[in-house]
Design a binder for these strands. Structure first.
Length: 795
DNA sequence: GAGTTTGAAACT
DNA sequence: CAGTTTCAAACTC
């Protein structure tokens, strides 16, 4: 359902990317409350997010903070709306006005339920869909779900949205426990201004969506309930469409929240807007100022190079913002990826040219002797808040930003002055890491694709070492978490001479002190090593759910990203230069690594060509890098091929068929001939049975091998004496040379005795055998005794 | 491992 | 949009 009229949509900025959560939309439409916003931008930079992710049935809730709520209220007394958005399972979100002194009245109408939502002096309650009557903002809640933890989420995740007249409306990405105040900036205010003056009225309409989830703070003492809620979170797609960045016309914002009934899928939240600057106000309240964008495209920013990949999995490219040590200019407002999406959402990395002070989301190092860090959090997608903690004590600092769903590491290197001056202590935290909050968002410049890891991605959970020097934790439900080391990265600083091949350093436009460098994610991974901890706000948050290494890149030929389930196979491309969709690596938005390809251009050394190829592919098919397996229509299979297969000879029962390969059945959109890949297909059932049987056999064999190996290891452990000093173990041999010699001597002695006694040969042989038996018994007995002794030693 | 088959992607 | 070609993976031997 399009909630943006074409004429209004034309006014939207280019940097707002089409989310196109088709499947989710379809799914949400089934709930009757979904809205879809689709922009027609032709992005030069791939922006893609996966909306096909399955999301838990939790539902976003707009809840006014209660009096007991810890979330601070907005500094503005008028027209202030506190919106708490959480992924709780509340069936009906509640949007209430936090202050009764509202004077303006922007009335929005819930197009679906008909509930009128007034932001001016009226409480906002009822169905979640909110739409601005003047096409300025639309908040739609797609689906409803079981009401369960609304109260919890409301208490933990609040966002204060302030509306200036009819100009602004912001929603949603908030950090749990860290309400965000979204405030309209003064139209005359410089970009990046974070004035919280509520009296300033601005004619411009700004929308910022910030996704927040209470369970997104697994590292900050997230409760079990929160973690549980994480599992059940629903997909939230917050979308802001904007065109014509220079247009002064009112901007239409569309915030679409999509919720489907599937759990465990990453949620998508998008934070968009022309410029969203968030100051690190008194925590947990966040003030966000929206400002005008400076640029609209990646290319529009000279000197800035950002590796963009239509990726599904993270950690392929690292974008490093390099601070210029010589720059004396005041810290600039640096735009960090704010648009988040686990589902066909947008990631925007923008840098404002404003001279306003750097707005930094602060993170607090706590009692764990952790250096002050800069925490950048973007997310709120299905519990996928990611955090980037940047050590600030040294210079230049490295800021690494990870966006859920993105395979990129965004690392910004800034001077210590810049970073440290902007850091503010965060609110109390029970953990070493403060809940990350969206940093500033400035318009302008870069659009990036944020492919989302498929829903089947394995969540990662790693225990957080309490005593390590972990600076930060980035959490994402489906993405890798990256933790920067407590110490600065000497490899990257200060002269950046140690950057890996392919690294591109580019100063910020205008000679600012911030630039970007594109470095391989692998390099970043290498930098991280042990100090990094991969964390996930997995629902269970248990070690059993899987611990993943930092590296997304294949390690020893096995990609840890796709992890335990299906490591990506190395490609064997020979003619495509790995720059066409023939190449699985390229199609998956990954760099080739440990592949067998020839003349590969799918690497940082050929980033230009690669970006060009990406653009070409996107020009040909804007959804080229989107997951092919998406959500089917209601009543159909949960997963289906987005385009359908065209098999003719395989019967769709071989891996030639993309449907079969994805282990899904063909759907109505398939054009296959002789399809046997349907529910009742006997061939399919047979294959399934065979496959199941084979799998069972493999599992049994594996289990047997494992058990046998374990037993052998256990036996060796028990029978191997431990060398106290060396720590090693020597192989314990019962039949040593000495034992053999002794045995032989015994046998010879017995033979001599037989000869001396003139016994018959048969009797002599018998006696020798008996002696041998005695020797064996002695050896066995000695071995048994030694075994017991060793066991006691080991214990 | 080489050759064949297959269907998606690319091209016309 | 349809037909053809290209391509690399899947498959067979």
């Amino acid at each position: 359902m399009d909630v943006v009229s074409p004429e209004l949509n034309s006014l939207l900025p280019d940097e707002i990317m089409d989310t196109e959560a088709i499947e989710d939309i379809s799914d949400s439409q089934a709930h009757g409350t979904n809205t879809q916003s689709k922009t027609t931008n032709e992005t030069t930079v791939p922006m893609e997010t996966d909306t096909s992710s399955n999301v838990s049935s939790a539902e976003n809730t707009l809840v006014a903070p209660t009096s007991k709520d810890s979330s601070p209220s907005s500094s503005s007394a008028g027209n202030q709306i506190t919106i708490s958005v959480s992924s709780t399972t509340s069936s009906l979100p509640i949007l209430k006005q936090s202050l009764a002194t509202s004077t303006t009245s922007t009335k929005t109408t819930n197009s679906v339920s008909g509930t009128t939502v007034s932001t001016g002096g009226l409480k906002l309650s009822g169905p979640f869909t909110i739409s601005a009557a003047n096409h300025q903002i639309i908040l739609n809640k797609v689906a409803t779900a079981q009401a369960s933890e609304a109260s919890k989420s409301s208490a933990t995740c609040h966002q204060v949205i302030k509306q200036e007249g009819q100009k602004l409306l912001v929603t949603a990405i908030g950090k749990s426990g860290s309400p965000i105040v979204l405030q309209l900036p003064n139209s005359k205010a410089p970009v990046g201004q974070t004035s919280a003056d509520p009296k300033i009225q601005t004619p411009q309409f700004k929308v910022v969506t910030i996704g927040g989830r209470p369970e997104l703070k697994p590292l900050v003492g997230c409760t079990t309930n929160q973690m549980t809620a994480l599992q059940t979170q629903q997909l939230k797609a917050v979308q802001i469409a904007k065109k014509t960045p220079t247009s002064s016309a009112p901007i239409k914002f569309i915030i679409t929240k999509t919720v489907n009934s599937k759990g465990a899928s990453p949620q998508s939240q998008v934070v968009a807007g022309r410029v969203l600057t968030q100051t690190s106000s008194v925590l947990p309240t966040k003030t966000i100022t929206l400002t005008e964008p400076i640029g609209t495209s990646l290319q529009s920013i000279p000197g800035k190079k950002i590796a963009i990949s239509p990726l599904k999995t993270p950690s392929k490219v690292t974008v490093v913002s390099v601070a210029s040590p010589t720059s004396s200019a005041p810290p600039k407002t640096v735009t960090l990826p704010v648009n988040l999406a686990l589902g066909q959402q947008i990631l925007a990395v923008q840098q404002s040219t404003s001279a306003s002070p750097v707005k930094v989301v602060s993170s607090q190092a706590t009692a764990q002797n952790i250096k002050p860090v800069q925490s950048v959090a973007v997310g709120g997608v299905s519990g996928s808040h990611f955090k980037t903690i940047i050590p600030l004590a040294t210079q230049p600092n490295v800021q690494q930003i990870q966006v859920p769903g993105s395979r990129f590491h965004y690392v910004r290197l800034v001077t210590a002055t810049t970073a440290s001056s902007t850091v503010q202590p965060s609110g109390p935290s029970t953990n070493s890491v403060q809940t990350a909050k969206p940093m500033m968002v400035s318009t302008g410049a870069v659009r990036m694709s944020v492919p989302i890891v498929p829903a089947q991605s394995v969540k990662q959970v790693a225990p957080k070492p309490l005593t390590t020097a972990v600076q930060g934790v980035s959490t994402s439900q489906t993405q890798q978490r990256l933790i920067m080391p407590a110490t600065p990265l000497p490899q990257i600083q200060p002269n950046f001479t140690n950057l890996p091949p392919g690294t591109v350093l580019a100063p910020a436009p205008g000679g600012g002190n911030v630039g970007y460098a594109v470095v391989p994610a692998q390099y970043v991974t290498q930098l991280q090593q042990s100090p990094f901890v991969t964390l996930a706000n997995n629902s269970s948050f248990s070690a059993s759910s899987g611990v993943q290494t930092q590296a997304r890149l294949p390690v020893n030929g096995v990609s840890t990203t796709e992890s335990t389930s299906r490591p990506r196979k190395p490609c064997n491309c020979t003619k495509s230069q790995c720059l066409k969709l023939y190449c699985d690596c390229f199609a998956n938005g990954e760099f080739c690594n440990n592949c067998n390809c020839n003349n590969c251009f799918n690497n940082l050394e050929h980033e230009t060509e690669r970006l060009k190829a990406i653009k070409t592919c996107l020009d040909r098919n804007p959804e080229a890098f989107k997951p092919k397996i998406g959500k089917g229509k209601e009543g159909e299979s949960d997963r289906r091929h987005s385009k359908g297969c065209n098999c003719k000879r395989s019967g769709c029962l071989k891996n030639y068929c993309e449907c079969y390969e994805a282990k899904i059945m063909c759907s109505s959109i398939c054009k296959c001939i002789g399809c046997k890949n349907f529910e009742e297909s006997p061939e399919r059932k047979t294959l399934m049975h065979l496959a199941d049987a084979a799998e069972v056999r493999v599992q049994q064999q594996t289990a047997a091998k494992t058990k046998l190996s374990s037993q052998i290891s256990d036996l060796l452990m028990r029978t191997t004496p431990v060398i106290p000093t060396g720590g090693g173990r020597l192989p314990y041999t019962f039949v040593t040379k000495e034992v053999l010699e002794a045995t032989c001597e015994c046998l010879l002695e017995r033979a001599k005795c037989s000869e001396q006694t003139l016994q018959p040969q048969a009797e002599a042989e018998r006696m020798i055998l008996e002696e041998f038996g005695h020797c064996l018994m002695s050896i066995i007995n000695s071995a048994g005794k030694a075994k017991v002794d060793c066991a006691s030693i080991n214990c």
